[in-house]
Design a protein around this nucleic acid. Sequence first.
DNA 1: GAACTCCATATGGTCAACCATATCGAAATG
DNA 2: CATTTCGATATGGTTGACCATATGGAGTTC
Lengths: 298, 298
Amino acid sequence: MEFTRRLLEQFLVLAEEKHFGRAAERLAMSQPPLSQAIQRLERGLEVTLLDRGPGGIRLTPAGAAFAVEARRLLDAQSAAVERVRRVARGLEGDVRVGYVSILSHHHLPRLLRAAADELPGLRVLVHQDTTATLVDMVRSGTLDLAFIRDPSPVTDELTLRAFADERVVAALPHEHPLAGADAIALGELHADAFVLPSSTTLPGLAAQAQLACRDAGFTPRCRAEADDLSGLLGYIAAGLCVGLLPEDLRHFPVPGIAFVPLRETSPYLRTTVAAVHRPDADAAVHRLLDLIARQRNQ
Amino acid sequence: MEFTRRLLEQFLVLAEEKHFGRAAERLAMSQPPLSQAIQRLERGLEVTLLDRGPGGIRLTPAGAAFAVEARRLLDAQSAAVERVRRVARGLEGDVRVGYVSILSHHHLPRLLRAAADELPGLRVLVHQDTTATLVDMVRSGTLDLAFIRDPSPVTDELTLRAFADERVVAALPHEHPLAGADAIALGELHADAFVLPSSTTLPGLAAQAQLACRDAGFTPRCRAEADDLSGLLGYIAAGLCVGLLPEDLRHFPVPGIAFVPLRETSPYLRTTVAAVHRPDADAAVHRLLDLIARQRNQ
DNA sequence: GAACTCCATATGGTCAACCATATCGAAATG
DNA sequence: CATTTCGATATGGTTGACCATATGGAGTTC
């Protein structure tokens, strides 16, 4: 016994019409095969669905129940097909997204909000980790997509898309003598203690800071390293260190910290946000990437 | 495109094995037709379900989604069949049951409790009305089953099953001089005012009371008629009337009323409870009737 | 009782589903 | 480069699903 859509439809029409002849007409077929189809159905279910009285037919209670179930089965099938097609088109489903801590306050929430608005069927599962680990997870397929601050460790078969290019600015405690300046030269910080992103979490940003300072004629005294954003900002807000950080942190006002632009225009004082994914990423990932690209143009 | 159970099963096994050869083996078929079946499925859905990489296959996100949906569809089908069969066997479904008010305190709740225990899948929809209306509703198919006190109006094609035969006893206000007696003769009430069931609601019981009194040598003075049980009992408890009522009302102690057996053994002083239904009633009704029959033997 | 209604049965034809065997082609392996 | 692995393709056969027309048979109606 197979519950062909056709068979279910035949029964449903018959249940409505309560008349083999009229039902057959609506089904664009002749009456005898409809009789046979319903008989097959009843034999398959081992249940009598109709009371064939003279002058027409009536549904048995089982028949009425099956009419409901048949409708449900048809709907369930259509829904299943719809769902699968939406998943295939990337309009529904799960996307596992990784990100580094430093993006958690601005770029990530912006993306999540946009995704929720424009791709409400998508479930974005987020995971924070170090740059290297994220890249490995994308490579191995544990993540579909990762947002990193620094493309340096991405060398091989992965696809990389930069989507924000920002200046690095000085992050100073409010009590720092230069905290009120419009702009400063990096060299003015040569005597300060620095907090740097840990080289495992954000290798690129840490290295860039070193190089920028070298170009400015000094080696930064590194008092602390921090794994994550709140660690970095904590040291600065506490007045213990100064930092060199992407200017997007401005969007997230932290009490006790002033962000001051630098006069230098070195490539070491610029930083990008990039999305990494496997080139064979599925449709949902591409939807997300498109969304990012569109956002950038706004 | 039809979602044959076979086809869904084929996909599910393949999704588990991730290998056409092994899946085909488990499905007791050779590999090529399995390939074709999956291709048909993909063409039908217009969705790629598998990534055929060298060294095996992987499910696409849509494929994974469809695996879930396929399992659901199969389960839904089985559930539908199960449900319909249970309805056909009378283990599930709705039964519309009518009853007269006088049964509401004892016989009906007993039945409902027993039904809930032994036929938990059955939904019993109850409706209270007069005897005549109930019988009409059963005849017309508005009700499946009705419990009445008095079979008199059931004359035609309906089936009747008596399931309780009880004495009629005197219902006296506590302050009545005979309220404390072990038993009384009906004649002792010849001077009392009576409350009788209304002749529309319970025609049999009203007529029986009249006849019993006539046999005892007097015509009862009827001070009141009541449509329902609380009306009847209300008049008695208020001390305004005496009544002749089925002894099952004892099970429902009413403050202010004493039930006193009668010495007479007239057929007019016996009353039955009966179930009425159409002879072609469905399985659920017969389950209920069987349940009543079994209860009676306990 | 003749005509009619309505569903069941009988018979036959078409076609797609389903399966098998044999073979191909691409990629990985040693 | 030969071999192996693994899925796709080619070809052919069987079967059941599905439909049509013609007919039967029970019950109703005039």
